[in-house]
């Protein structure tokens, strides 16, 4: 069943606060709805809606150049959009913290989500990113914190992939499976 009272978005937000995240870039995903709302409501965080995820990679590199930490929120389909822009991060050793909500994994009804959903982790690894899959909601917060530390202290790209089982297949719009949003 869907985790209607899931606390992991709040856990991530708390990590963002503790880690001094100042810019949060995102292409919306249903799984990130609450976290995006929390970031948008906090005047210490600049929430930047993007038209494509690769812009978030570049944006957060620029933020770091200017002395601010950031995080990129996206769904697994967005990972594919980021690949070439990750060369900016790896070549310059910019830190990049990505939090990816997975589709195409657990009871997915839309087959077009499967190519990226099944391969995002490998594609990120090939592009030089440290990947942390997490399949339990209670471990999301600590995983994001671990990724943030290796990011900002190690100058690398790290991505937390939150499994579709954590997000809850049926939470998308609260609709029945066959009526879920694309």
């Amino acid at each position: 069943m869907a985790e209607t009272a899931a606390t992991w978005p709040d856990d991530i937000f708390e990590v963002f606060r503790q880690m001094g995240i100042r810019q949060v870039a995102y292409v919306p995903d249903a799984g990130h709805t609450r976290l995006i709302d929390l970031c948008r409501a906090d005047n210490r965080i600049r929430a930047v809606g993007l038209t494509t995820e690769e812009d978030g990679v570049a944006l957060l590199a620029g933020a770091w150049l200017g002395g601010q930490r950031g995080a990129l929120l996206m769904q697994s389909s967005g990972v594919g959009n980021c690949i070439n822009m990750l060369s900016l991060v790896t070549q310059c050793r910019f830190p990049l913290l990505s939090v990816v909500t997975m589709r195409g994994q657990w009871g997915e009804f839309n087959p077009w989500q499967i190519p990226m959903g099944q391969n995002s982790g490998e594609q990120l690894r090939l592009a030089g990113t440290v990947v942390y899959p997490v399949e339990e909601g209670s471990r999301v917060g600590e995983t994001v914190e671990a990724a943030a530390r290796i990011d900002f202290e190690g100058g690398v790209s790290a991505a937390v992939l939150i499994g579709q089982r954590v997000i809850g297949t049926k939470t998308f719009g609260g609709a029945a499976l066959e009526e879920s949003e694309p």
């Binding site: 100042r22 810019q23 870039a25 600049r46 930047v48 993007l50 690769e54 812009d55 978030g56 990679v57 570049a58 944006l59 957060l60 590199a61 620029g62 933020a63 770091w64 150049l65 200017g66 002395g67 601010q68 950031g70 070439n84 822009m85 060369s87 900016l88 070549q91």
Partner: peptide
């Protein structure tokens, strides 16, 4: 030297930080 298409977004992050 690369990152084609990224200059404006990169500068936006810098401008917001500074």
């Amino acid at each position: 030297w690369g990152a084609m298409g990224g200059s404006v977004a990169f500068a936006l992050g810098l401008a917001l930080a500074q």
